[in-house]
Design a protein around this nucleic acid. Structure first.
Lengths: 204, 204
DNA sequence: GTTTCATATGAATATGAATTCATATTCATC
DNA sequence: GATGAATATGAATTCATATTCATATGAAAC
């Protein structure tokens, strides 16, 4: 957690630092990201950086926390509160749409999360031995779908939770390949959902 | 490409170096992998390393090439030669099975490829602007399936190729999480294929 | 207007590799 | 077994950063 000195900073300066950090961590995995670049881009001296944070990891963890909170509030906002109104596939659609919208509005945050996920050691250090958050999330969702009788009972939900989480990342990957994909084009997400629905749905 | 000195080495020594490299690159992404560790584990002096290779990247690229060749020969072996006998879904099954078998027999090679895929810059340096090899592979396969009339025509094959490639990685991810997964247990792969087949198949 | 305290600074230092290089050793050839 | 070319060696160097530290600044307190 950053030191008090950081939180005492005028908001404008704090923002500059966070923005600089996002830029660097969005383009470099943790170990390659440079504190010097962050400090320079934020317009603070190297010494100041260590006035505000214990070390590079301190800032990084804080950033991850900010991102996680932001994303959670996204998903929670329109999804969870509708949980009892929507059927399973509608909920699933909402989850993917939330992710998609989040990606559109915060394009620089996604690569940060992806890179963390690829550094198992660091991931474990931050989240402990917790199961991957997003897998856990999909597992819950699938259990709800099973209870509703929407899902083919032949499926092992633990396996499928991981598959769905993986597909969510594929979706993000599409979006990240900047330029090539028109973010207003819902085709990708529709295709993916069509595929998933056919794949999971209980046969009559 | 390694220098002649490397290829002149007695096979035993060459193997020791490659094995040491596999160990290091399987547990560390390129930029974190240490030449010192590789040299030490192979039982050669640091200087010798630079007698054999231009630099760290030289060895790395060579290793990637070895792995790609090995994997290609795997997939080609029983898949491509049966292309005209099998229907699309059978072929797809063979592809996943090949990947699965390869993973079983070469567990240390998989993380190396995964980590490369996550380092877009390095990936581009090695493969140029080529589309991801495995996406291209699945695209071809899907086009074959479409020609056969096996696939729901509503799908955009480019999108689905990427989805399938992504799922292939999920599968590998399962396998890598060592210990937890019994490699003789075909359940994961069966579940995944069942899901994919339902998802893609043309409705009557 | 002097003292005090928190904060800011960037040059100096520490670190952890990659790479080089001067020297030692091996090996084939005569 | 003498010779030189190829190969092996690991200590020294370089390099790119992270981190520390001694000093400066500035604002509030008296």
């Amino acid at each position: 957690m950053p030191k008090d000195t950081f939180f005492n900073l005028p908001e404008e300066k704090r923002k500059r630092i966070i923005e600089a950090a996002i830029d660097e961590f969005a383009t470099h995995p943790f170990h390659q990201a440079r504190v010097t670049v962050i400090a320079e881009q934020a317009g603070i001296a190297m010494g100041s950086f260590y006035q505000y944070f214990e070390d590079k990891k301190d800032l990084y963890k804080y950033l991850i926390q900010l991102i996680a909170e932001k994303k959670l509030s996204y998903i929670n906002s329109d999804m969870v509160k509708n949980k009892d109104k929507y059927d399973f596939f509608r909920l699933l659609r909402e989850v993917y749409l939330s992710g998609f919208r989040f990606a559109k509005e915060n394009p620089r945050l996604l690569p940060i999360g992806l890179m963390l996920l690829n550094d198992k050691e660091l991931y474990r250090e931050i989240y402990g031995e917790h199961e991957d958050l997003s897998v856990g999330f999909f597992l819950q969702l699938l259990e709800y779908g099973k209870a509703q009788g929407a899902i083919d009972p032949a499926f092992d939900l633990k396996i499928m939770a991981k598959v769905l989480a993986g597909m969510n990342f594929s979706l993000i990957d599409f979006i990240i390949e900047d330029g090539k994909i028109d973010l207003d084009d819902m085709e990708i997400i529709n295709q993916m959902l069509y595929f998933i629905e056919n794949g999971l749905r209980k046969k009559k």
